[in-house]
Design a protein around this nucleic acid. Structure first.
Lengths: 232, 232
DNA sequence: CCTTATCTGTGTCCATCGGATACTGTGTCC
DNA sequence: GGACACAGTATCCGATGGACACAGATAAGG
């Protein structure tokens, strides 16, 4: 698994030449996931995009789990190059870049959850995030925690925004809003704060990313300023 | 679907008495999910816990998606009663309560993602979160955004902490750390900040929840203080 | 009381899924 | 020129979610 993600080729000698490569398999999977969602990615379907049968894939990949892991790391790609900036701007740019990545491949939100083996690209993203905080007074654990908070926020905003192709569970944003409105019309008195909140909302939203990100950055900034004022 | 989640009984007349109720089905599903993970919940398996066959479930529930939705709302339950507190303490307590909920039923992290119809309990949680912020100068949209940030953070921390029974993807925390260590041993020079961060980390972590939550609350607090100082 | 419409649960069937296993054919090294 | 190692194939399996037709129970209407 580690070998797969980190691209250690097994140095083949005898035998026929492989008709396909691991990268081609992963790219085929990515194309399907982009077009029809992660649920549409089956071994059969991936093999259909390639000049081989389903079982041939198992020569290159131990199972579907590993295939999705390789797909994910490949689709994420390395973080874009950015000029050096003060930590706050650097971290903010990093977060927006991350958001872009998830917007490009919404299925990454499904495939990169939970404890898992990290690939080189995912690790490179982490590295870049930490680089933004390297000059600050945060210790290692705090830096990791800070990156985690930002990542969580970006992920969940992307989750809300994203439209998943071919998702059976998928309601459109209007459908959800309509359903909520219907419920509040009959059961509204049980949720007074929710009703008021929805009424006093400037209808066009989409500010969730900026709002939360600014709050988190403010919070980090405050911590750092406090440290400068009162060092340990 | 809305009728299912919000418990509108269809008022039956003729025909045999149902052998099972929707609640019994959901409870059976919850028991399985708690014990063996959400992936172990299949229609077959749920029916096995009840005195009916698989297909009988479809008389009470349109499909598996809806079953999981009902299970989720039921398992989440209503938010615990808490005394009124200033917004910061109230929101903090709410977040910790939410974390407890996810810790009790880790599979809720899988089943309550993405756009979906909200059940009465999930809406009650939202209502309670908003109640904590009702007295502040945040407008409706900002209150919703604030709740979203906190929820994201709690969810992702719970995700990291939680151990999923019978998860095929599941690596233990040590396994992940070992694998990461092995990678950094060979490819360390590509990830200098990550290496430094891991070295300067007090080994026992688990502070992620508190750290991020405090940063977010600090950020909100700062925004509110700024408003008092310089009103719109 | 008895018919009849209606509803519950059952049995059977199906496509699709991930994967195991045994095979055929192809290429390389001794 | 074998022997060996590897790539891809064909076939099979159990499990999944769900469609469909049917048998039996029950209450309303005559």
């Amino acid at each position: 698994m580690t070998e797969l993600l980190w691209g250690r080729e097994p140095a083949r000698s005898r035998g026929p030449k492989p008709a396909i490569t691991l990268t081609e398999i992963a790219e085929a999977g990515i194309a399907i996931a982009d077009a029809e969602g992660l649920d549409a990615v089956s071994m059969q379907r991936v093999a259909g995009e390639l000049p081989v049968t389903k079982m041939a894939l198992y020569r290159h990949v131990p199972g579907k789990t590993e295939l999705v892991a390789v797909m994910s790391d490949l689709a994420m790609g390395p973080p874009p190059e950015r000029p050096a900036l003060p930590w706050r701007e650097a971290l903010r740019t990093w977060a927006l870049d991350l958001y872009d990545g998830f917007a490009r491949h919404p299925w990454l939100l499904q495939s990169t959850i939970g404890r898992r083996l990290l690939g080189p690209n995912e690790l490179a993203w982490l590295e870049r995030g930490l680089a933004a905080l390297a000059g600050t007074d945060l210790n290692g654990g705090e830096q990791l925690d800070a990156i985690l908070v930002v990542t969580s926020h970006v992920r969940n905003i992307a989750q809300q925004t994203a439209t998943f192709p071919g998702q059976s569970t998928g309601l459109s944003e209007e459908e959800m809003e309509q359903a909520l409105g219907r419920i509040l019309a009959t059961e509204g008195e049980r949720f007074p704060h929710l009703m008021r909140a929805m009424q006093t909302t400037a209808d066009s939203e989409g500010q969730g990313l900026e709002f939360g990100l600014d709050r988190i950055l403010d919070g980090l900034d405050l911590l750092l300023r406090r440290r400068v004022a009162v060092p340990d």
